[in-house]
Amino acid sequence: MVVLVLTACPAGLRGHLTRWLLEISPGVFVGHVPARIRDALWDRVVEMCRDGRAILVYTVRGEQHFEFRVHRHDWEVVDFDGLKLMRRPNSKARSSTLRPGWSSAARRRKVRNR
């Protein structure tokens, strides 16, 4: 089983994927294709996706019974003790460039606690 989710990809790519997969919702494709076809479809998605994003989930033998691939997505695939998980970017890491006490609320709090 293959599930492919596309976001902001060209219509030509969606048309190409409908040759092999069924589009059950806009940008969501499902189907059962051999591994060779799945890999060829993923190569085509990466090639044609441009500014869009894509996630491919497919069945494999193993403990989780599925694997996934991502292309230009905020979340990243991490291996955690043999399990593949999706890690969301840490919001604290993005805001770490701000120095402590930068907001007016922080300044008021500082004055109040003196």
Score class of each variant (00 low, 15 high):
residue 111 V to K: 15
residue 62 G to K: 03
residue 37 I to Q: 11
residue 37 I to R: 08
residue 67 E to Q: 14
residue 45 V to R: 05
residue 66 F to C: 15
residue 58 Y to M: 02
residue 1 M to Q: 08
residue 35 A to R: 15
residue 11 A to H: 05
residue 65 H to F: 00
residue 15 G to D: 13
residue 104 S to M: 11
residue 108 R to F: 04
residue 10 P to V: 00
residue 109 R to M: 10
residue 50 R to M: 04
residue 23 E to Y: 05
residue 101 G to F: 01
residue 88 R to P: 01
residue 79 D to T: 10
residue 5 V to Y: 02
residue 76 E to G: 10
residue 27 G to T: 05
residue 88 R to L: 05
residue 97 T to N: 08
residue 74 D to F: 09
residue 21 L to F: 06
residue 47 E to R: 14
residue 80 F to A: 08
residue 21 L to V: 11
residue 16 H to L: 12
residue 28 V to A: 08
residue 41 L to R: 09
residue 114 R to S: 13
residue 50 R to V: 04
residue 71 H to N: 08
residue 3 V to S: 05
residue 25 S to N: 13
residue 101 G to A: 06
residue 64 Q to H: 01
residue 74 D to Y: 06
residue 49 C to P: 02
residue 43 D to T: 09
residue 60 V to P: 02
residue 35 A to P: 03
residue 48 M to F: 02
residue 80 F to D: 12
residue 110 K to L: 11
residue 90 N to S: 15
residue 57 V to L: 13
residue 18 T to D: 04
residue 38 R to N: 04
residue 80 F to T: 06
residue 107 R to M: 10
residue 86 M to P: 06
residue 5 V to N: 06
residue 84 K to C: 00
residue 60 V to D: 00
residue 108 R to P: 07
residue 85 L to G: 09
residue 78 V to R: 15
residue 74 D to S: 13
residue 33 V to K: 07
residue 52 G to A: 01
residue 94 R to F: 04
residue 96 S to E: 13
residue 73 H to F: 10
residue 84 K to L: 12
residue 91 S to N: 06
residue 34 P to M: 00
residue 4 L to H: 07
residue 19 R to W: 01
residue 83 L to V: 08
residue 23 E to G: 12
residue 61 R to T: 04
residue 32 H to G: 09
residue 8 A to Y: 03
residue 51 D to K: 11
residue 69 R to K: 14
residue 77 V to Y: 00
residue 31 G to P: 00
residue 112 R to K: 15
residue 64 Q to M: 12
residue 53 R to K: 14
residue 43 D to Q: 14
residue 31 G to F: 08
residue 83 L to W: 12
residue 34 P to N: 02
residue 78 V to I: 12
residue 14 R to C: 08
residue 80 F to N: 05
residue 57 V to G: 07
residue 63 E to W: 03
residue 40 A to D: 13
residue 107 R to S: 09
residue 32 H to I: 07
residue 103 S to N: 09
residue 14 R to I: 01
residue 12 G to I: 07
residue 21 L to G: 06
residue 20 W to V: 01
residue 6 L to F: 05
residue 97 T to W: 07
residue 34 P to A: 00
residue 9 C to G: 15
residue 108 R to I: 03
residue 104 S to A: 13
residue 39 D to G: 05
residue 71 H to P: 02
residue 61 R to M: 03
residue 87 R to A: 12
residue 30 V to T: 14
residue 13 L to C: 07
residue 7 T to L: 10
residue 39 D to V: 04
residue 76 E to H: 11
residue 54 A to L: 03
residue 1 M to D: 08
residue 25 S to K: 13
residue 13 L to Q: 06
residue 88 R to G: 02
residue 78 V to K: 15
residue 66 F to H: 15
residue 7 T to C: 09
residue 67 E to L: 01
residue 95 S to N: 11
residue 4 L to G: 10
residue 96 S to A: 15
residue 68 F to G: 10
residue 17 L to R: 05
residue 54 A to M: 01
residue 67 E to M: 04
residue 44 R to K: 14
residue 32 H to T: 14
residue 94 R to W: 04
residue 58 Y to Q: 07
residue 8 A to V: 03
residue 78 V to F: 09
residue 23 E to Q: 14
residue 23 E to F: 06
residue 37 I to F: 02
residue 15 G to L: 04
residue 46 V to K: 15
residue 69 R to G: 01
residue 69 R to V: 02
residue 95 S to C: 06
residue 52 G to Q: 07
residue 65 H to P: 00
residue 103 S to C: 07
residue 74 D to E: 11
